[in-house]
């Protein structure tokens, strides 16, 4: 009987088709194992996606320009390469209070400036005939010009509002003095005439006070928006860029 069982099992064979199909599967498996790129495709895609997210985040959050708004509240908006506000900082006590009350982060810069200008604190200052200077600075000239156009449009025909450009490389020096870069140029001008002036004192002075003090000491107000600020030009009050100069002459 055991011979019968043996003979019966002996009659069972793996067909050639079965063997061939199996070897085909083996070869396919070997081929896929030899393709390391496929194995790394998913991790590589995940890495690329993560890198893209990080790069986008970095591009979005890195400021490439700034807008300094100074009356006495001294406020500075850091702007990314896409023209959106990524940071708002007050550079004196009034400026800090103003910054705390604003919700303009991630707003397009023109809307952000409009929002700032519409604030009651700013309107009160303008009503007191204070001068509001808006200075823009950017790492790229194209963005600087675009920002200047945008803030000039926001300023419109508002009284005593002056717009101008500044040197972006001076921002760090301005911040080290505890000043917005918009007020920094005025401070430098006045400090050259009055060496006793400290940045702290300048931070507490309004832009009009700074300008008037420079004029009293016979200085040049060209460096201040409204008086020129390099290539800047004034807006409003019907006097534009000549406003400072005219005042200085008077």
């Amino acid at each position: 009987m055991d011979d019968r069982i043996k003979a019966s099992f002996d009659a069972v064979h793996a067909s050639q088709a079965m063997k061939d199909q199996t070897m085909r599967a083996v070869r396919q498996h070997a081929a896929s194992a030899k393709r390391p790129a496929r194995r790394w495709r998913l991790p590589a895609a995940a890495f690329a996606a993560a890198a893209l997210i990080i790069l986008s985040g970095w591009l979005w959050m890195s400021p490439t320009a700034a807008v300094s708004i100074d009356v006495n509240p001294s406020l500075e908006l850091s702007v990314n390469r896409f023209g959106y506000v990524v940071q708002v900082q007050g550079w004196n006590e009034d400026g800090e209070q103003l910054a705390d009350g604003l919700n303009i982060r991630f707003m397009p810069v023109s809307r952000a400036v409009e929002t700032v200008l519409a604030r009651q604190e700013i309107q009160d200052c303008l009503a007191r005939e204070e001068e509001l200077c808006i200075a823009v600075a950017a790492t790229r000239e194209g963005q600087q010009q675009a920002l200047l156009d945008a803030v000039q449009q926001c300023a419109g025909s508002g009284r005593n509002i002056y717009c101008g450009t500044a040197d972006y490389s001076q921002i760090n020096a301005a911040h080290e003095c505890g000043l917005s870069f918009g007020k920094y140029r005025a401070y430098l001008e006045l400090a050259a005439l009055d060496p006793t002036l400290t940045p702290r004192q300048a931070a507490q002075m309004t832009m009009r006070e700074l300008r008037e003090r420079i004029e009293q000491l016979g200085g040049d107000t060209q460096a201040i928006p409204g008086g020129g600020y390099g290539q800047g030009k004034g807006q409003g009050n019907g006097q534009g860029a000549q406003h400072g100069r005219e005042k200085g002459q008077n």
Partner: peptide, 14 residues
Amino acid sequence: TNRAVERYGDMIRR
């Protein structure tokens, strides 16, 4: 693997 298929294929089939 091919050698193993030839040698043990019938056994696995059974």
